[in-house]
């Protein structure tokens, strides 16, 4: 049918507008996913865009077919209705084609789930704890831990983003595998950084694991994605990816800073105080 072909061309044109990725942080009037900076998000973006083409195609086919049907078989044009109620071949076709489409989606989808759920040999492991309403980070084995709160509006500098920037960013080295151990100290939170392609719930009594590796230097943002109380919208995540040397010196300075108050006490003791 000619209208199908035309519709498909229009659709491809529209997709071309939509698909080019945006920045790796939310932008005004953004239409698609944030730009991937980690391999997992690249894979997710690819999969999503494949799905977007499939579902747009189905949506257009159904809509065009529907409009064609109601125009062609409107009362004026077709005063006597037919009495057809069955067509076995047709029913087999419209069951088997969707089934094939489903299979075509399942195969890459399953591959993707396996690919990124594997544990890795991490270069650095960070324990992330969700609190009402801030995140705390602990560099495991490095004796560095700190809390990260939303930066109030009046303290924002010119290049900082309202409701996204924090007082203490999570700092990680570029090109290194960073493993996160995520848990919560009170209610359920979700640690989500869209441009890395990660979201994991922070659940009390459980430790969830995820990881990322980002090569590109920069500051990336996420938020808590699970309702956790009145200030759920105000516990963002800001991650600064820096060169390795810069990271090492930052870690050292942070370690001495962290050690000062706890010089004579183990972490467990300090918790009990």
């Amino acid at each position: 049918m000619l209208s199908f072909k035309n519709a498909f061309i229009v659709l491809l044109g529209l997709l071309a507008l939509v698909i080019p990725a945006s920045a790796s942080h939310p932008e005004p009037w953004q239409l698609n996913l944030q730009k991937a900076v980690a391999p997992r998000m690249e894979a997710i973006t690819q999969m999503h865009n494949f799905l977007l083409i499939v579902i747009s195609f189905i949506a257009v086919v159904v809509t065009v077919l529907l409009i064609y049907t109601v125009v062609r078989f409107r009362e004026k044009k077709n005063p006597t209705p037919s009495k057809t109620t069955h067509n076995t071949l047709l029913e087999v076709i419209w069951t088997s084609i969707p089934a094939l489409i489903v299979v075509a989606i399942i195969v890459p989808s399953v591959k993707l789930i396996y690919e990124f759920d594997r544990s890795i040999d991490a270069d650095i492991t960070i324990k992330v704890t969700g609190h009402q309403w801030y995140w705390s980070y602990e560099y495991e084995g490095k004796n560095v831990s700190f809390d990260s709160y939303l930066l109030p509006e009046k303290e924002l500098k010119a290049d900082q983003k309202r409701n996204l920037d924090v007082d203490n960013r999570l700092v990680v080295p570029a090109g290194k595998k960073v493993k996160l151990h995520i848990t919560s100290a009170d209610v359920i939170h979700a640690f989500a950084v869209p441009s890395f392609g990660i979201q994991k719930n922070a659940i009390p009594g459980r430790i969830n694991e995820t990881w990322f590796k980002v090569d590109q230097l920069g500051i990336y943002y996420g938020q808590c994605w699970a309702i956790c109380g009145p200030r759920h919208g105000f516990m963002p995540i800001a991650i600064e990816v820096v060169e390795e040397e810069k990271f090492d010196s930052w870690l050292k300075s942070k370690a001495s800073e962290t050690n000062e108050p706890h010089k004579n006490s183990t972490p467990t003791k300090s918790k009990n105080q």
């Binding site: 939310p26 983003k161 309202r162 869209p194 938020q223 919208g233």
Partner: peptide, 13 residues
């Protein structure tokens, strides 16, 4: 674009 649900205020973008 990553806007979480159930938030009373959002980043300006």
């Amino acid at each position: 674009a990553g806007m979480p649900r159930r938030i009373p205020d959002y980043p300006d973008a």
